[in-house]
């Protein structure tokens, strides 16, 4: 399948583990607002707060996928709003290369998603998390995670 939405298939109640790298200045505040506004979003997301989406090196993403995450989200400020001017510019470029590289190595690039969420966009945050969780449910468990022996 190319681009587009992932077909919805039931996956026997599979609950994906999702790691989210949220930038301190926008996305984390947006997630916080979702909390204080009592908006509902799937509990599959595990949040890691980073100072900037530009802090997220691609190794973090691969390590998360290997360590047991079914999907990884990187959320940062909208372009132009970065607290450090251009940190999110770098994130955008890195993730673009990363997703292609993952594809060549046989790791589904749809398991990695980059989005911009501002501090006031609690609704958007919940929508993205919900969408991504549904996508991961449809994709099923991540085959590259390390199985504990």
């Amino acid at each position: 399948m190319k681009g587009g939405k992932i077909d919805q298939v039931s996956n026997n109640g599979f609950e994906p583990k999702i790691v989210g790298f949220l930038c301190n200045w926008c996305s984390y505040a947006g997630a916080d607002l979702a909390g204080t506004a009592r908006l509902k979003y799937p509990a599959n997301l595990r949040v890691i707060r980073v100072m900037c989406s530009g802090r997220v090196s691609p190794e973090f993403v691969v390590k998360a996928l290997r360590a047991g995450a079914d999907g990884v989200m990187v959320l940062g400020c909208h372009i132009g709003d970065c607290h450090y001017q251009a940190g999110n510019h770098r994130a955008a470029k890195r993730i673009a290369i990363l997703r292609r590289l993952l594809n060549y190595m046989g790791i589904d690039p749809r398991r990695v998603r980059l989005e911009w969420v501002s501090a006031s966009e609690a609704q958007r945050f919940t929508k993205i998390v919900k969408e991504f969780t549904d996508d991961m449910k449809a994709l099923g468990p991540n085959p590259m995670k390390k199985v504990k022996v």
Partner: peptide, 21 residues
């Protein structure tokens, strides 16, 4: 290198962003 410049200096081509799986 595009990885050390901003998006204004070296833009990311939107149409090339999607990965065909």
């Amino acid at each position: 290198s595009p990885l050390v410049t901003t998006l204004d200096e070296t833009p990311l081509k939107e149409e090339a962003k999607d990965v065909a799986v």
